[in-house]
Every structure is written in C-alpha cells, then in structure tokens.
Computed example of a mutant assay.
Amino acid sequence: MNPSESPRHELILGGAKSGKSRTAELRAKAWLEAAPGRSATLIATALPGDAEMAQRIRRHQVDRAARVPALETVEAPLELPGVLRALAQPGHLLVVDCLTLWLTQCLWPPGAQQPDSTGWPAREAALLAALRDSASPVVLVSNEISLGGMPMSREARVCVDTLGLLHQRVAALCARVTLMVAGCEWKVKEAP
C-alpha cells in the first residue's frame, strides 16, 4: 500500500471451520512478504471459558505460528477498539479474530448471569470509529451465523440480530468483504 493511500480494510465471514481464520492469516503472510519493513499483529478476542475452548485457542496459536511466524499476537477479549487505536500505524496490518467472540463477550461478560446490551451501542461506535480512523489496514474475521433458522431463545435472537447489524456496519467501512465456504473464497464486495 502506498503511504498516501487510505488503508483498505477487509471483512472475512464464514461458518465454523470454513477457513476464515486461515485466510486472514494468509492475508497477513502476503502483506509481510510484499514489502520490506512491514509488520502485522493478530488481535485475538477469545476467552478460554472451558477446557475445550482453551484447547481450541492453543491449537489456533500453534497453527498460526507455523503458518505465519512473523505475525505477532495481542489478546483483547473486551477492549478491541482501544487496542486497534493503540496499534494502528502505516505499514502495520492488523488482523482481528474474531468479531463474533468479541461481541458475545461484550453482550454476556464472563461471570454474568444474564446478557446485558446496555453498553453495546458505545462499544460498537468505538469499534467503527477506530476502523474509520485507522492508519493500518485491518482484516476482520467473523462468523456468518444468520443463514440458519431463527433461534428459539430471546438471548440467541438478540445476539444474531446484533451481529448481523455489526457485520453490515463493518462491511460499509471495508473495501473488501469475503465469504468463506468450505475453504473457498467468495468475493462479496471489492471496491476499486
């Protein structure tokens, strides 16, 4: 990217095991190899809520280190907008994996007995502002969960609706939107 150009963001959506994280990591690898002096950081949002999730996180870490050894990692399970702002600089790619977990943890903080969406509008606004203001290109990974049936519980419906609206707002700020299906990329949006 030419320093005089504005950063180009990408939203990568897909279902479970669709290849979205791997694709984001390969974007980082290509970014790092394209020009000397570039850097990249993955901003991980997952919290290990149980043993199986902790194992998933470890597997992602090992796989990521093997695929893209130069990709640094920062953990930001709740304070994603602030971390995006702190790390943004020209020549530095940021990869967010993933918006779904971040939103879920914001709506249903660890240890909470009930979901709480009262603080969500401010968190979403902070994320969108951080993306608009970013000096870094940002690749955002998220689960496309709205293609199935309507969930039975109110809490699940709120989560699906909120994530769908977040995707729309993030996509509006992205030059590229990619949908992953069975490891294959489908270009949904590609701005000139």
Rank of each mutant, 00 (worst) to 15 (best):
Q114R: 12
K29W: 09
S39V: 13
A65M: 07
A112C: 04
M152T: 09
R59Q: 05
A156I: 12
L93D: 01
G91W: 03
H92D: 06
L78P: 09
L94T: 01
R67E: 15
A175F: 03
R132G: 15
S117T: 11
A122C: 05
A46M: 10
R64D: 09
A51R: 14
A16C: 14
L127P: 02
K189T: 06
V68D: 08
V188L: 01
G19W: 03
V68N: 10
Q113W: 10
K187G: 09
H60K: 06
R67L: 13
G119V: 00
V181Q: 02
E33W: 05
L47H: 08
R58L: 09
E72D: 12
A156C: 14
T104K: 02
L71M: 09
A112F: 15
A44H: 02
R27F: 07
Q113R: 15
P110F: 04
V95D: 00
G148A: 10
P151N: 07
I43N: 06
V62I: 13
P77Y: 08
W108H: 11
M152N: 13
P7M: 06
P115D: 09
R8H: 05
A171F: 04
T162S: 03
E79G: 11
I145C: 05
M1R: 15
T104R: 04
L99W: 12
S134E: 12
D50M: 13
L140R: 05
R27D: 06
V177I: 05
A46D: 15
A129W: 05
S39N: 08
T73V: 02
L84W: 01
A44L: 11
L93K: 10
T178R: 01
E144S: 05
S134N: 06
C184N: 10
A24I: 10
T73R: 07
